[in-house]
């Protein structure tokens, strides 16, 4: 597919897009805290691939390359913006009539989103790749171009930050979840 894409075969490229667009989009969405420019950034990463597919020498490196390029673009875009729209996540509206339990659920979701959005960039990327995209530490380290030790350190610090920020307001929830886990 990669070779076919290099020969300007749009249908082969469409196959690549259908395979990798969703994970790239999800990662960019988290890095940009649900910002409206998520689609632009994800698209830009694929356009870079289309413009110069020779940058990828091995097909198995493609996903990692896309993730790396897209995350760098997302971080650049975020840094250019003076105010990242963190609150936009909480504004995702559900058109259905919601019950009290659902409202509570939405509030939990908003708090978790907020805690993730508040992480420093690199910790957020590490948490996103490993916890949300299910990548191994080795693959995530490759995407971030750092050592496995470094990504483990980022994950440890990220988890600690998440635990602290969520435990402040959701100690009861943690109690409940912790007792179920036990």
């Amino acid at each position: 597919m990669l070779l076919a894409s290099a020969r300007r075969d749009a249908s082969a490229f469409a196959e690549l897009v259908s395979r990798y667009y969703k994970p790239v989009y999800r990662m960019v969405w988290r890095m940009m805290n649900g910002n409206a420019e998520t689609e632009d950034v994800a698209q830009e990463a694929f356009v870079k691939l289309w413009q110069n597919p020779a940058q990828i020498r091995e097909a198995r490196a493609l996903k990692g390359w896309l993730m790396r390029v897209a995350s760098n673009l997302a971080i650049d875009r975020l840094r250019r913006k003076l105010h990242a729209d963190i609150d936009a996540i909480a504004e995702v509206a559900d058109p259905r009539q919601v019950t009290g339990a659902e409202l509570e659920e939405q509030a939990v979701t908003a708090r978790v989103n907020q805690a993730i959005a508040s992480l420093p960039e690199r910790q957020k990327l590490a948490v996103t790749l490993v916890y949300f995209e299910g990548m191994s530490n080795i693959s995530a380290a490759s995407v971030m171009e750092i050592s496995v030790d470094a990504i483990e350190s980022l994950l440890t610090r990220g988890k600690r930050a998440l635990r602290e920020s969520l435990a402040e307001d959701w100690r009861g929830l943690l109690d409940e979840l912790s007792s179920k886990a036990g």
Partner: peptide, 21 residues
């Protein structure tokens, strides 16, 4: 850690906008 992982599952799951691809 287990509690945190469960909490993380409650984060919003982004969905790709219609027609993005």
């Amino acid at each position: 850690d287990a509690a945190l992982e469960k909490l993380l599952t409650r984060a919003t799951e982004p969905s790709v906008p219609e027609g993005a691809e």
